[in-house]
Design a protein around this nucleic acid. Structure first.
Length: 510
DNA sequence: ACTATGATGAAATTCCTT
DNA sequence: AAGGAATTTCATCATAGT
């Protein structure tokens, strides 16, 4: 049941909302017909009309979750060059078979080396696909490293060494800055420096079973064990100490950090804290397109050679303007052939900043909401239980993800302030012929012991408490009020904790 | 009231050279 | 390793035009 909730639950669900002026409008289109006005702003170039979405779907091969080929299998005790003659023969056969399938010989050898000799062909093939994906993501700039030189930085080092290193880093940073200690309202610094969070590299969370070298079990703190299960989300790159605070409140569970660039064609670094089992994971199918070109095949002809991007950056709340599109067109048009390096640099910088794609001759445009659905693999919603308390539901990414996993939704209590988001969730609910009940609540602060007790009694408890609290005061893009977890909106995290803890205690009474 | 646009950096991570 | 440069980031606000 809940064990099957997978990374893309939120990564793919885009379950966020904001008070931002234009964002709600822009994203109110998710899952619905795109407003023609949005289209008019960036009229498609004649030759590019009608993106070949279907092509993109077909191009995406089923394949294991992305893993980095920088991962070593230290501790597996495999020493090359010690195979018996039988093993050699078997190896030769496997290699030639896979090479016939179209894989490079050295890739095949690496795969056998990593997975072991007896590994089934299908698994090896998956491994190679995954390695290719990871390689692509890791070495975008054609930086080929000899395998031997690559150090796998995370997870394998002794924890103490990491902490020491991070601590030193923090101290030197502070000495270097020595500036004002903004935010006096911050808690007394009694937790000390090991509050610095360690982000894994590559950022692919705890991993899935197709990665032989990853540890797939963990022991949760007693207080954290469900029911209910819960799944919390927020931006990975918060100001310092925020994730440790969140983790401290949520029963000291270690956060899981995932970057969606390993699963689709756009980056999106997020952290999750949950008490779900992690040993029986699988990847959602169909696999979304993994590169920009796979997502937008018909735009390939407009991409200049010097734009080497293969993944989009994170989806932002601001959209690049039509004026910017014109400025870039002018800049590129003025030169025949390749534009000068400084022009290239300017254009690339803007394209990265605003997540622009080439949709015509010298013409870039922002990614539209419906196109982003393609990128994230959100199309093909098919109509279909558990009881879910969904906090900060946004447009209902969590509900969509659960539905896609084939998990029937019996009773869903959705807490979401934005009326537009409520409407979107409701219309998705209606469109997908949901059999269960959907209850809307406006404000998390209104959710009190009484209402929770009522639901628990009515439904017999919640199976899953899911949600991501506001990131407004945590996100790097915020120039005005990046005030940390105590910020105006982001402090609503404490309501997440309050409500989760209430549900927990009430369910334990029975 | 709605829409599009531009101005407004910091903070942390990652890349890259030494 | 160390440190500087480069890159990335669920943003907010005011304002002019529609």
């Amino acid at each position: 049941m809940a064990a099957q909730v997978e990374y893309r639950c939120f990564v793919g669900g885009l379950a966020w909302a904001t008070d931002g002026q234009s964002l709600e409008r822009a994203f109110s289109q998710f899952g619905e017909v795109v407003d023609s006005k949005v289209r008019q702003r960036h009229p498609p170039h004649q030759e590019t009309e009608g993106f070949e979405w279907c092509e993109a779907r077909e191009a995406a091969k089923p394949c294991a979750v992305a893993v980095s080929d920088t991962g070593t299998r230290r501790g597996h005790g495999d020493t090359p060059g010690h195979e018996s003659t039988n093993d050699s023969l078997e190896k030769d056969g496997t290699v030639s078979l896979l090479v016939e399938m179209g894989y490079e010989a050295d890739e095949v050898l690496t795969a056998i080396d990593r997975c072991g000799l007896g590994t089934p062909i299908a698994e090896l093939s998956d491994f190679i696909c995954a390695a290719q994906m990871a390689k692509e993501a890791d070495f975008l700039h054609h930086r080929e490293l000899p395998r031997e030189d690559v150090e796998f930085s995370s997870h394998r080092k002794p924890k103490n060494a990491l902490l020491l290193k991070d601590k030193r880093k923090l101290q030197s940073n502070e000495a270097w800055k020595g500036k004002r200690q903004r935010g006096n309202e911050k808690k007394p610094m009694d937790q000390e420096d090991d509050t610095v969070c360690h982000l894994p590299n590559p950022m692919i969370g705890f991993g899935v079973p197709s990665e032989p070298w990853r540890i797939l079990c963990r022991t949760l703190p007693k207080a954290a064990v469900g029911p209910p299960f819960f799944y919390y989300e927020n931006v990975a790159l918060t100001p310092k100490g925020v994730w440790s605070t969140i983790s401290r409140f949520l029963y000291d569970i270690e956060p899981e950090f995932v970057d969606s660039k390993f699963f689709c064609a756009a980056a999106r670094k997020r952290g999750y804290i949950h008490n779900l089992p992690i040993d029986n994971r699988f990847q959602l199918l169909p696999v979304p397109p993994l590169t920009i070109h796979e997502a937008f095949p018909s735009t390939k002809k407009w991409w200049p050679k010097w734009d080497k991007r293969s993944k989009l950056n994170c989806l932002l709340t601001c959209v690049g303007s039509a004026k910017l599109t014109e400025r870039i067109r002018k800049a590129v048009e003025n030169s025949d052939g390749e534009p000068p390096l400084d022009v290239q640099k300017y254009v690339l910088e803007q394209c990265r900043k605003w997540n622009l794609v080439w949709v015509g001759k010298n013409k870039v445009a922002p990614v539209e909401p419906d196109e982003m659905e393609i990128v994230m693999g959100l199309e093909d919603l098919f109509p279909a239980g558990i009881n879910v308390l969904s906090l900060f539901s946004g447009i209902g990414g969590a509900e969509v993800a659960l539905h896609k996993l084939g998990i029937p939704l019996k009773n869903v209590v959705s807490v979401e302030k934005s009326e537009i988001c409520q409407t979107i969730l409701q219309s998705w609910w209606d469109q997908t012929n949901q059999k269960g009940n959907l209850i809307h609540i406006e404000d998390v602060q209104d959710v009190d012991a009484h209402s929770i007790a009522q639901w628990v009694k009515l439904f017999g408890g919640f199976d899953l408490v899911i949600g991501g609290s506001p990131c407004n005061n945590l996100a790097g893009g915020n120039r005005v009020s990046r005030d940390g977890l105590e910020g105006k909106q982001s402090s609503l995290f404490f309501d997440y904790f309050r409500i989760l803890d209430l549900v927990k205690s009430m369910m334990n009474q029975h």
